[in-house]
């Protein structure tokens, strides 16, 4: 899993609520058997018009946002399908963090297992973030995971929550499976007790 400690980057605003994983990566791009190349199809049906040309109005098609590693999105980001192709596509594009007021449960779990950091802020802060990016599109934000802190261009530091286990896994770049594998003895005991067959 990709390690995450601290990033400083411009942010890409997508002020839409309830962005579902079918929009993040449409199902027809899930016929592959690996995780590679999905970034090319990120938000495919919003990025491209019916004739296949790029939609000039869609934010990800603008030159100035290329290279941005932080996505700022509306409430309930990643709802719908459980497809882990969604965080793979976001990371394939180059995103390392998504800031929103809330995330759908399965997306949240999937993101954390890939080194894509979901940053939860309250409504007021989110509105401020959208305003700041609108005023100065290239302005930088810093996300410091160890401090659980989002540093705004106006100097404010906003604390964000993350569970201790996921935080440590991300900081160390440790695959969460390692922890489960280390519990083999306990799993065996459980099986003996509950399912002696």
């Amino acid at each position: 899993m990709a390690q995450f400690s601290r990033i400083t980057s411009q942010a890409v605003p997508l002020p839409i609520n309830d962005i579902d994983t079918d929009q993040i990566i449409p199902a027809r791009f899930m016929k592959g058997t690996n995780k590679e190349g999905l970034g090319e199809n990120l938000f495919n049906d919003w990025r491209f018009l019916k004739d296949g040309s790029p939609n000039p109005e869609f934010i990800l098609n603008r030159k100035e946002v290329q290279g941005g590693q932080i996505l700022i999105a509306g409430d309930n980001f990643g709802c719908g399908s459980s497809r882990e192709h969604a965080p793979w596509a976001l990371m394939g594009w180059g995103f390392r963090a998504v800031i929103s007021t809330s995330f759908a449960d399965i997306f949240h779990n999937n993101a954390l297992k890939n080194g894509l950091l979901p940053v939860v802020v309250d409504e007021e802060i989110l509105v401020d973030l959208f305003d700041m990016v609108e005023e100065v599109p290239l302005v930088n934000f810093t996300i410091d995971l160890a401090q659980q802190s989002l540093l705004l261009p106006d100097g404010r530091a906003v604390e964000f929550p993350i569970d201790t286990f996921s935080k440590n896994s991300l900081l160390g770049g440790v695959d969460q499976l390692q922890y489960l594998l280390s519990m083999e003895d306990r799993i065996v005991s459980y099986e003996v007790e509950h399912d002696p067959s």
């Binding site: 779990n109 890939n114 922890y179």
Partner: peptide, 21 residues
């Protein structure tokens, strides 16, 4: 019963367990 991502599919394949809050 609940849906999981592919990393978690790997967890269950390998350990028959999941990490859940």
């Amino acid at each position: 019963a609940f849906g999981i991502g592919t990393s978690e599919v790997e967890h269950v394949l390998a350990t028959q367990c999941l990490l859940q809050h």
